[in-house]
Design a protein around this nucleic acid. Structure first.
Lengths: 349, 349
DNA sequence: CGAAGCACTCAAAGCGCTTTGAAATGTCAG
DNA sequence: CTGACATTTCAAAGCGCTTTGAGTGCTTCG
């Protein structure tokens, strides 16, 4: 059932049907009602591709992951992000596309995204410290919103991010106030922008507290439970082990907990842990009282914010660079307490 | 840069350019080389919508989640599934769309998916025991592959699923052989088809071992760490508690482990646990030796299998119903051992 | 009463591509 | 040299929609 057939059945022109269904005013109420009824009866839906070709808009948003970070796409935070974004799109009739694209220097993949015109806008995920991609994005001519930020690039593009520096600085200061002097950071890959900002936040707060940051206590790696476990073991095996650990995700924190269990350490007493918590639907940080003291930043809100911003920019391309900075909420749980130095390792003492 | 401009620049007709770029044989090698070079030089990419309108194919696949199971979309297994499917699509030039659609009885959302023609095929996720949706899918006229199965419907549609009955029966038999008589099952929502099949597998194997299934030991709920934790607590509080637990996902198993830790029980000695393991990138089941005895079924393979099947069906719509049944691999870990009845609860003894 | 204005409707052009059917060119046997 | 045939190229139609510019039939006003 297409527009022509429907118009023929009703006995009016295609123009009138199109106008009636798209809410234009030049159609009498009676005609409109007749057309709407017929469209419903015949289950008519405009062909997306044809409408897109005619209007120049495809009513789809591309969510793009650089292939260099394909591993990131399996990060479950994106599910909540997607759900948040999808809610916004659904209200406005947009479809959502997922693309893993080659972002290496010689690649045309980002450019093609624009040239092929299959989406009206881009949400770019998980930027590394590589601003070349930013130029590629600009060259597409499509509006885009970056989830996260490019390091060392002027913030003259649209982005949605959390305030990593502030959140991790706050956590560090809190631990320092509790008397902790040896504070480890279990972080994502060093090439990720958020990881860099988080480390900076921790280091700055350490210095402010008169503590010299120790690079040995920073552990970079994939944001997996396994990495959380291994990094914790490594930290505890250090000659001068930490009494507190700041963790970049709840999933890694579960690995931290497992490592503590394995060594008979109790969270909040033998070892203080603060974790960033994306507040994903699939992981709850304990029940009424959170297990972990945490920096909460609901990732679904990030998805909503990014999608909302992108649609705004699509509606009004003249808009100057829009930056949305979401603050994490510091939430006290059971995993932190005053510093109790761990017994030195046996071979040390 | 569009086809017309490009053709004008090169000095040939649009037809020739189109044919040259799409690999048709009616173009001389010399002309083709000239055209390909020019296309590359001018960064030409065909407009997806226009090509789609002309060919009737949109080169996109829709991954559909019923809104009644929006909660399911945040299940991290889908990330690995997406990545697997995306790999297949990338090879063939397909885009991937994500849709959460209203699958309630009166809704036209599934129908619209077909009528709007924005995708060439559908992968339908996480079916409930509701075959009305199956009819809606058929009515779209689009090829579709179901990830999972509809209960109580003839398998006369394309699906990809794991052999839930067999896997969970195998796990149950294994535990029974170790002397366990009280075996609990921590499962997904009862309305999910896979949950039903898994329970059937467990019950059948119990009966085969001469054990009467106890519905009290079946716990349905969301596949979250939290549900794993709570169900384990509930199971252990039972008057006649289980000595073994079969768990439907590794994430829930992490909740089981947490509950054991909280009660001072050791996995594999005080309580045997077998978990289904989707082998997601984000969770590793221990290191070289798996922590949990598990039924492994790499979800990325499911994604690849479903996408491959769908493209096959798109290429050849006359294909009869194709069913891909993936078997889980039973992997021995450290979480199982011979039955040791737990001490009865105090108020009982 | 005729011109002007209004409300409504329509035919046709165009979005950028693919594909059909025809034309131009080249090749070769007779 | 001609006709038959293969090769290469092209103009034009069409995919299903939106939108422009042009009507059509009424009402209203000078």
């Amino acid at each position: 059932m297409n527009l022509r057939d429907l118009a023929r059945i009703i006995g009016v022109s295609q123009t009138t049907v199109s106008r009636a269904l798209n809410g234009y005013p030049e159609v009498s109420a009676a005609t409109r009602a007749r057309i709407v009824a017929a469209a419903r009866e015949h289950n008519y839906r405009p062909n997306t591709r044809a409408a897109g070709l005619a209007t120049g808009r495809s009513m789809a948003i591309a969510h793009v992951f650089p292939v260099s970070l394909k591993a990131e796409m399996v990060n479950p935070i994106f599910n909540d992000f997607f759900v948040g974004a999808a809610e916004v799109y659904a209200e406005r009739g947009y479809d959502m596309m997922l693309s893993v694209i080659d972002d290496s220097p010689g690649s045309r993949a980002v450019h093609d995204l624009g040239a092929r015109r299959s989406a009206d806008g881009i949400i770019f995920h998980a930027p590394r410290n590589d601003r070349a991609v930013l130029e590629q994005l600009r060259a597409t001519g499509l509006p885009f919103v970056v989830h996260g930020r490019f390091a060392d690039a002027a913030p003259d593009y649209h982005w949605v991010d959390m305030n990593n520096r502030r959140a991790f600085g706050q956590a560090t200061a809190f631990l320092a106030d509790l008397g902790h002097r040896r504070i480890a950071l279990i972080n994502g890959h060093a090439s990720m922008d958020f990881a860099r900002r988080r480390r900076e936040g921790v280091f700055a707060a350490l210095r402010a507290a008169g503590i010299a940051p120790d690079p040995d206590l920073v552990f970079n790696g994939e944001m997996t439970e396994f990495h959380g476990f291994e990094a914790t073991c490594a930290a505890l095996d250090h000659a001068d082990p930490p009494t507190a650990i700041i963790v970049s995700s709840l999933i890694m924190a579960m690995g931290v907990r497992r490592a503590c269990d394995a060594r008979g350490l109790r969270l909040g007493r033998d070892l203080s842990v603060i974790t960033h918590d994306d507040v994903m639907s699939f992981f709850r940080n304990g029940g009424d009282v959170p297990d972990f003291t945490s920096l909460r930043s609901p990732i679904r809100d990030h998805g909503r914010a990014a999608a909302t911003l992108l649609l705004r920019v699509i509606d009004d391309p003249s808009l100057g660079p829009q930056n949305v900075m979401l603050d994490a909420v510091f939430t006290l749980g059971l995993s932190t307490g005053p510093a109790h130095p761990l017994p030195r390792k046996r071979h040390q003492g």
